[in-house]
């Protein structure tokens, strides 16, 4: 039933296909390129050559094959997306559950802290955090996770607040179930759909923001074939070497698009209250 409904939703199906393909590329990427030397070794004589049969996406300023680098870049992009979302969930979901279910000073304080995090655009805060950590993908991920968890906390908080007034929670409380038990065994499964939707869209969003950090020079480090970094490096070779900017950017676009479409589709199925178009 669910599968049927999903498969009728063309954009969502397209999203699923894209996400599956990206996953495949990320896992089996090395089979699609001729070897690490194409990705990492410089070949100064062949630098900045336009797309050709041999190098379908051209070569970069060190003579490395852009196609190979875009393919291998998928892995770190996905890793960032999934890693950031997982870490944000790990922080945000328990906090949201706690703050939503109990009504103590602690929950009030926690929610005010999320207010502080949400008071500045995420990118600005992540930029500041990434700047103080040592450079590298891990730091960028940490910076993103540290600034993205309030989104999960808020989602869970809202849902739990909503559910708390339901009859079944009151019934459980009446039966003497412990708050922990109610929260984890009964509330959590009920807010799971909201978390899954947020997470799917969050992966795309995290990839986008991580690429922006990479572009600003505080994410992935050379010679990593990071997409954002590649675009940053391409700028000084524009407009002649346009392929340096075009292909990594398309890769980001398609990946994020896939996750967004999938997230939309999931929302339709998992959350019938909301209309598909939102």
């Amino acid at each position: 039933m669910v599968v049927k409904k999903f498969s009728r939703d063309l954009p969502a199906t397209f999203g699923l296909i894209v996400v599956m393909s990206i996953l495949t590329v990320a896992v089996f990427g090395w089979w699609l390129v001729s070897g690490p030397s194409d990705v990492y070794d410089s070949n100064l004589l062949a630098r900045l050559s336009p797309p050709s049969a041999q190098n379908p996406f051209g070569t970069d300023d060190l003579g490395r094959d852009v196609y190979s680098r875009v393919i291998i870049g998928a892995r770190s992009a996905l890793l960032v997306g999934v890693g950031v979302v997982a870490a944000s969930m790990l922080i945000g979901v328990p906090i949201g559950l706690y703050a939503g279910y109990t009504r103590t000073i602690g929950s009030e304080v926690v929610m005010r802290i999320t207010d502080i995090f949400l008071a500045v655009p995420q990118l600005v805060l992540a930029l500041a955090i990434a700047q103080i950590l040592s450079r590298g993908l891990e730091s960028a991920m940490l910076a993103l996770a540290l600034t993205y968890w309030p989104a999960f906390a808020r989602t869970v908080y809202g849902e739990v607040r909503h559910q708390k007034t339901s009859l079944y929670v009151e019934a459980l409380e009446g039966l003497g179930a412990s708050p922990f038990r109610i929260a984890v065994l009964h509330l959590l499964p009920n807010v799971a759909p909201a978390i899954i939707i947020r997470a799917t869209i969050g992966v795309g969003f995290a990839i986008l923001t991580a690429a922006t950090l990479g572009f600003l020079g505080i994410g992935a480090t050379p010679p990593s074939p990071d997409w954002g970094l590649a675009i940053a490096e391409s700028r000084q070779f524009l407009p002649e070497s346009w392929w340096l900017a075009l292909f990594p950017g398309l890769a980001i676009f398609i990946t994020v698009l896939g996750f967004n479409l999938l997230g939309d589709g999931l929302r339709d199925i998992l959350d019938p209250k909301l209309r598909r178009s939102r």
Partner: peptide, 18 residues
Amino acid sequence: SVAGLAIATFWLAIMLQL
């Protein structure tokens, strides 16, 4: 509208500039 949310601002800027 779906594309609008998936496109990286910095990339769009560079492409339009290009």
